[in-house]
Amino acid sequence: MNDFDKIAAKNKGKITIQDLNGFTMLGKGADGSVFQLSPEKCVKVYVNEDNQKKELYALQIGQSSSVIPRLYEYGSNYIVMELVNGGNLKAYLKKEKQLPKLIAMKILFMLAELQKVGFTRLDTEVRHIFFNELGEIKVIDHKRAMTTVRSVPTKLFTGLKKLGYLDQFLGHVKELHPSIYEQWKKIKLI
C-alpha cells in the first residue's frame, strides 16, 4: 500500500494502469481496471473520470450498509476500496448447481439494503454479487446506482434465468417474502 501512496502522491491523485506494474490485476472491464493493493484493499482505475465520480458518490452514500464495499480513499480517476475476498454469485451457481434458500435470503437482504441507503437502481448483475470468506454478501460496480431508476431487479432476473436458477430463486422469494413476490408478479416480471 505504501508504494501506491507514493505513486498517487507523485501523480497528484491521478493513476495510470502503467503506474500499477507489479500489482496484481483482478479484473478489467469497460469502465476500468481493478488491482489488488493489499489483502484488504483494491484500487479501481477508471477510463472515464465521470464514471469515477458516479461510483464514488454511490459508495459514499452506501457506507452505512454492510453490502457495499468500504471506501478508503480516492483520486480524480481512481477509488481505493475494500477487496472482497470471495466468489461471485454466477461462479457459485455454476459450481454448486443450486440456489439455496439462504442465498435467496441474502439476495433479498441486499436488495433491501440498496433501497435503504437510497440507491435508485435496486438491481445488479449476478456477476457483481459476491460472497466474502465469511459468507457475507457484497455488491460491486455502483456507477449507475444513482443515475438509473429501476425499482425491480430485472438484470438479476435475466442473469438468474440465463443460468437456469430464476424459478428456484422465485420459489424461495414466494415462501420468504410473499408480498415481494406478488409485487413482482403484478408488474409482470414473473
Rank of each mutant, 00 (worst) to 15 (best):
E125K: 15
K95W: 05
L99R: 07
L108R: 12
Q115F: 10
M110T: 12
C42R: 00
E55Y: 03
Q115K: 15
A58F: 08
A30W: 04
H128D: 15
M146C: 13
K54T: 08
L56T: 09
I61F: 05
V152S: 11
M146S: 09
L122H: 14
D123P: 08
M110I: 01
K138E: 04
L59I: 12
E55G: 03
F109G: 06
Y92Q: 10
E96M: 12
E125L: 10
T120L: 12
I79R: 02
K44E: 06
P69Y: 01
E49Y: 05
R127K: 13
K106H: 07
L89Q: 02
N132A: 04
L111E: 09
G86R: 04
K14W: 05
V80L: 01
R70M: 09
F130D: 05
V43D: 07
E96Q: 14
I15W: 03
E40I: 03
A104I: 00
V84F: 00
Y57L: 14
K138C: 03
K53C: 05
K95M: 12
K28H: 12
Q52C: 13
S33D: 13
N88P: 00
V117R: 09
T16K: 08
E49W: 04
K10V: 08
G29N: 04
G13S: 04
P39E: 11
I137L: 15
N11P: 05
L134F: 13
S151G: 13
I61E: 10
F130H: 06
H128R: 04
K90E: 13
L108F: 05
N88Q: 03
G87K: 10
K94F: 10
G29P: 02
K95L: 12
P100F: 09
L93N: 03
V126E: 01
E133Y: 02
L56F: 07
K6N: 12
T24S: 10
L122P: 02
T148R: 14
